[in-house]
Design a protein around this nucleic acid. Structure first.
Lengths: 206, 206
DNA sequence: GGATGTGAATGTCTTCACAGCT
DNA sequence: AGCTGTGAAGACATTCACATCC
């Protein structure tokens, strides 16, 4: 399949959430125009995004909500669930580990690690914080699909190297550092201070 | 000033973080090549990004670390500090309210609100959770620069409308909904489940 | 009639490549 | 010699506009 832009994939994820909402309201069909308005884009953009993967609509009618929902879940790889581990049990890590929005969408956080002996052994919602030194042996036993890195900045690269050596191929990084990774490992960075700085820029330049 | 791409602003924020690191190590100058490698981009991109705002380097030498640091802080609007409030004192909201990475970069979270009477009155690190019904009267008294919305999805738009009516002009939204806003209000969305979905897509398409 | 699907046109961002300083 | 600053070229993404089909 032809290479799809990151921005397109992000919008597909937005469309899916909207479709689930419409489905819950019993709506049968939806037009690109309605999806666009709710997703903050244009109808042409919606049609173009979908057209990369096939033609799912009916001219004159729009898209079938249940059908497009299934198609998008398939395209995004969401027909299965994912095992997720979190490294770094600080404030952010603990919030992420317990975030309901993940579980609702098939991302199951099943392990949390920290280096601090004071945190190891704590229970959160049935999740026990494990010693990060166990990382390799645990990963050899139980397969994990995605790792969330929420360690302090100076520990992030080392932890990442260990995750990659243990076979992890997707990382969501909350540490404010640019991780160095083999090209076949997917990474997404979430840098919250950076988001505030873009707001600061926006406030200043108007 | 000409309009600057969002992607450029985000990279400037990355460069600034790197410059602060280099400054802490006593480095006097840095080349676009070094900045690029560490930021995960190209030297031409670094030079182009900076050139929108002036010519800060010396040919044959590179950029003065302290000077470029000051310039970027100025460009990004970081010479001042910002008053930040958080609405929604759930797991994510409480982690954000106490996140040290914000304070370190001049973003001071000075108020947290929630609608749940069971949470109102709780103290976190000297921050007291206030009743969200007080929002308007508090904002009339104490100026706030940026609001972080970390409510459940169904409350996000209503809270946002109240924030905007009270004069807030910058919003960092963690609720997984597309907020409708006047064009003069800056908004950044952080959608963590969406990030995982782009990873899910990446895992599937390789 | 009404909405999709899609080439073509436009707009935006990135990379190239080199003249010009230091 | 080394590295910046920047037009020009190229790559990529979005928008237009309309033929096509239900």
């Amino acid at each position: 399949m032809r290479k799809i832009a990151e921005s397109t994939v992000r919008r597909l994820s937005l469309y899916l959430r909207l479709l689930e909402e419409f489905g819950g309201q019993g709506k049968e069909t939806v037009s690109s125009e309605v999806l666009a308005t709710r997703a903050g884009t244009t109808s042409a953009q919606v049609r173009k995004d979908l057209s990369f993967f096939g033609s799912f609509g009916k001219r004159g009618l729009g898209y079938s909500v249940p059908e497009l929902t299934v198609r998008l879940r398939d395209i995004l790889g969401l027909k299965r669930s994912y095992q997720v581990l979190v490294v770094g049990a600080g404030k952010i890590g603990s919030a992420l580990a317990q975030y309901r929005g993940f579980a609702e969408r098939g991302f199951r956080v099943t392990a949390v690690y920290d280096a601090d002996p004071g945190k190891v052994g704590l229970r959160w919602n049935g999740l026990v914080v494990r010693d990060v030194r166990q990382l390799e042996q645990d990963l050899a036993r139980d397969h994990m699909d995605i790792a969330i890195v929420s360690t302090p900045p100076n520990a992030a690269q080392e932890v990442t190297d260990r995750l990659v050596r243990s076979g992890i191929r997707a990382i969501l990084n909350f540490a404010p550092v640019q991780l160095v990774l083999p090209r076949d490992v997917a990474v997404k960075n979430v840098n919250m201070a950076l988001e505030l700085e873009t707001l600061s820029y926006a406030l200043r330049h108007r």
